[in-house]
Amino acid sequence: MSDAPALRTRLAARGFDGITLLVLPAALLIAGLFIYPFAYGLYLSFRPKDGSVFGNYLKFIADPYLYETIGRTLWLALPVTLLNLFFAVPVAFRVRLMHRQRLLTTILVLPITLGTVLVAEGMLNYFGPQGWFMRSLHLIGLANFGSFRLVHNYWGVFISLIITGFPFTFLLTLSYVTGIDPALEQAAATLGARAMERFRAVFLPLLAPGMAITFCLSFVQAYAVFPSAVLLGQASGETRVISIAAYQAAFEQYDYSMASAIAMIMAAVQLVIVTAVLALRALAYRGPAGGGKG
């Protein structure tokens, strides 16, 4: 009896009491539905059907139909992410000065909310050979019907990743840009810095860490492209991305071991790129983007 309060006191001193226990259900849920499946997937990936340990991974490296998916995925995800970021920054800089941003941000949040499947369905019509986009191009004399296609190929997936990815990148960038104290720009202006110089000397260094995070999150989204690669691309050809390979292994060949191996490879490639970007970020200034204590 005399020990009980002492133990409670000692635990409370380290921050453990009844309230702390409230974190457990959520932690157990994530452990059970995220950590465990990942660990199990990793384990399963080393238990291929042929009984060896690295069979799945060797098969992946040996089969161009499989290993080329990495290149195809990156060939979509990297340019799209960079392009989105490249356009998001200047637009965010303009929108930052707007008084009524709400309408624009609301419109831009639509494709994120509606998701890739709906955008794919809309694009099949809108960007299709007889869709409004092609008709408009034809009308102003930029293209003839049938001279090129914007769906069922690389560009279909590319455009869909821009349409769902740009708003995401933009809204994230906007939240970083508006986090920078406007007085910093004013200070730079009074000190003689022109718009370009203000951007280069003040905004860019302060934005860089946020841009690294934005790049990673946007890249990860684009990298995991799945429904639009199937619906708008050529699922067995130039847009056979890695998630399609993993899906087919699991749900068409019922080879869960192979599917897990592909998922692990997918996670690993992603990790390599994200780590590289975050390592670059470590070189930049990281700290408050405010002008003072305030």
């Binding site: 910093l184 810095a193 022109r194």
Partner: peptide, 20 residues
Amino acid sequence: LASEDRGFGMVFQNYALFPH
């Protein structure tokens, strides 16, 4: 003139020092 062309010195309420 634009602010950057006036060449005045300004001290801001929250200092507005470049944190980096």
